[in-house]
Design a protein around this nucleic acid. Structure first.
Length: 237
DNA sequence: AAGTCACT
DNA sequence: AGAT
């Protein structure tokens, strides 16, 4: 496992989790699908004001927003096409860090169960695989105001996010809008995970630092967020 | 208000 | 630039 840094209760930072080769693999898979089916531009409920970021999704359910509201749906809002499957490297990331999070939350010592800490898949993982992978593309002037991820029925699983491309200034606070915040500079390949007491923490992107990465030829930043949406089915032995 | 702008 |  790469370095693990506790930012706040329930907020974990893994700098340089993905090496350059894996970043390139993820980039290629994301861009081929998103450019093929098309990015969509989310708009604010009621007002219809467009976001500055472009979006796309992988997985059985994708997050979308328009005048009707925020919601998860299995199809692209423009074409009605089903979202492509979540890339294998992201499923592995989820499997690994989701287990890690449970142990950290339950207060277990890592060494006690380390031999079980495999990133390999097995049938028991299906019940807890990520259903949604939202992809946000930030141009050099794009921002994302402070908000909560609260459109999921199941808030017990953490949110896991991956940064690709240009660096960004990320800010995260508490579950209260007026709570104190901390800023963190995220770089290409970094992973951030927040859940438990931080699952409803307000967070956002204050700015993108242009030309700080060569990963994306057109510049900008791609952020991937893996989430559980529906209540997981009961595990039966 | 997952926006945009303002102020310290 | 960075924090709010």
């Amino acid at each position: 496992m790469s370095e693990e840094i506790l930012i706040a209760p329930g907020v974990y930072y893994y700098p340089e989790y993905f090496d350059r080769l894996l970043q390139e693999t993820l980039r290629d898979e994301i861009l081929s699908h998103a450019n093929n089916l098309g990015w969509f531009q989310p708009t604010l409920p009621r007002w219809g004001t467009p976001f500055s970021v472009k979006m796309f999704n992988f997985g059985s359910l994708g997050w979308v927003s328009d005048k009707s509201g925020y919601r998860y749906q299995p199809t692209h809002p423009d074409s009605g096409t089903k979202w492509p499957p979540i890339p294998i490297h992201l499923l592995r990331l989820w499997s690994s860090l989701r287990k890690r999070f449970d142990r950290l939350e339950r207060g277990f010592d890592k060494s006690a169960t380390d031999t079980q800490d495999s990133i390999s898949d097995n049938q028991n993982d299906t019940f807890d695989s990520p259903e949604a992978c939202l992809i946000n593309y930030y141009g050099s002037n794009a921002k994302m105001g402070l908000h909560q991820d609260r459109d999921e029925q199941d808030l017990s699983a953490p949110v896991i996010s991956v940064s690709l491309g240009d660096s960004a200034l990320f800010r995260i606070g508490t579950a209260e809008r007026k709570g104190p915040t901390q800023s963190l500079k995220l770089h290409s390949g970094d992973v951030l995970m927040f859940g438990g007491s931080a699952r409803l923490a307000f967070h956002g992107i204050d700015r993108i630092y242009p030309d700080t990465s060569s990963l994306l030829s057109e510049g900008g930043r791609i952020n991937l967020t893996l989430r559980r949406v529906t209540k997981p089915a009961a595990k039966i032995f």
